[in-house]
Each structure stands twice: as C-alpha cells, then as structure tokens.
Amino acid sequence: MGEVRSNKTVVYRCSYHVVWCPKYRRPVLTGAVEDRLKQIIHEVCAERDAPIEAIETMPDHVNLLVVCDPQYGIHRLVKQIKGRSSRLLRQEFPHLKSRLPTLWTNSYFVATTGGATSEVAKRYVENQRNV
C-alpha cells in the first residue's frame, strides 16, 4: 500500500503518476538522451527526497511514478525536473536545440495513485515498453 513518510509537521503517503511530452510530441527521448534524462530525474528526485517508484521513457513521453511531500508539492517537483532536464539536455545534445524551440510542452498529466491502485500504476509504467 506504500510507505508512510513524514517531515517535521506532516505524515503522508502521496504517490503520483506524472506524464509529460517533448514539444510537438517529437520522438527525441532515445539512446543517450533517454539515459541522461533518467539520470537527471533521479538526481532531482533524490535532492527533493522524492522516491521514484517507477520510471519509463518512450520516444515521445515520460511516465513517472513518484512519492512527493505534499508541502513541497508535485507541481514544484515536476517544474524542477522539466526545467533542469531541458536546460542540461539542450546543452549536452545540441541537436535538440535545432529541432525544438523548447524541450518540453508547458503541460503535463498528474494523478494520485491511491493505496490500492499504486501497484497497478507501477505495473502500467513499468510495462510501457511492452505495449
């Protein structure tokens, strides 16, 4: 059902399924770009004490199942992931600059997974490559 976590004032169990896409849904998340993106996501989540339950990238979108402190907020976490990954990936892979005015769309999908459906959401994210 998920681990109960806490900070100084809140005890929580908040797991989120987040999906976002490159601008124009371009299939650019492959090879070294994909590997580096996952590394950046892991770094940001570790810094924010936001454990990743599952992550999978497809060429044209990212699926992330992550636990996030409600006082920090999922919006701030996603904003930080998208901002840092866009900046670093465009610096490290110049071909992304020529194909896209920005790496990510402004929007994203987010849903709470709930206790009973957390495992279902995790299997969904992990099985994206098999679809």
Rank of each mutant, 00 (worst) to 15 (best):
W104C: 09
K97I: 13
D35A: 15
G83Q: 11
Q80Y: 03
D60I: 07
F109T: 02
V18R: 02
Y124W: 08
R26H: 05
V33P: 06
R5F: 10
P101A: 13
E43V: 10
L103I: 03
P27D: 07
L103Y: 08
L77Q: 05
F93T: 11
V78Y: 01
P59M: 10
N7V: 08
G115L: 09
L103D: 05
G73Y: 07
V10F: 09
R87V: 08
P94Y: 13
V33H: 03
G114H: 04
V125P: 01
L89A: 12
S85P: 07
Y108G: 03
D49P: 00
V18P: 04
Q80C: 10
T102F: 12
G114I: 01
S118W: 06
H61T: 05
T57M: 02
P51W: 04
N127M: 09
K97F: 06
F93G: 12
S98E: 15
Y24Q: 09
I81V: 14
L29W: 01
D49V: 11
T112M: 01
Q71K: 15
I41G: 06
H75I: 08
A111S: 14
T112L: 00
L88S: 11
V66C: 01
G83E: 11
N127A: 12
R13S: 14
V11E: 14
V11F: 11
R87H: 15
R84G: 06
R87W: 15
V125Q: 03
E126N: 11
S85G: 07
L89N: 13
V110D: 03
G115R: 11
E119D: 10
L88F: 10
R123N: 14
L64T: 02
V78L: 01
D69T: 08
C14A: 12
V67Y: 00
Q91N: 15
I81Y: 04
D35S: 13
V120Q: 11
E126G: 00
Y16V: 00
Y24G: 04
C21K: 05
V33L: 08
N63T: 06
V110Q: 04
R36L: 10
S85F: 07
R99D: 14
L64I: 03
N106L: 09
E92W: 12
V11K: 15
E53K: 13
H95S: 15
Q80K: 15
Y24V: 04
H61C: 02
Y72R: 10
E126S: 07
A32T: 14
R99S: 15
H17E: 02
Q39I: 01
I52K: 01
N130V: 10
V18E: 06
R99G: 12
R26I: 00
E53D: 11
T102M: 11
L96D: 04
T102W: 09
R26G: 00
V66P: 00
V10W: 05
P51N: 08
Q128H: 12
R76H: 12
L77F: 06
A54P: 08
K23N: 09
Q128C: 08
N130G: 00
N127Y: 05
A54F: 04
R5S: 08
E43G: 03
G114S: 04
L89I: 11
V125F: 02
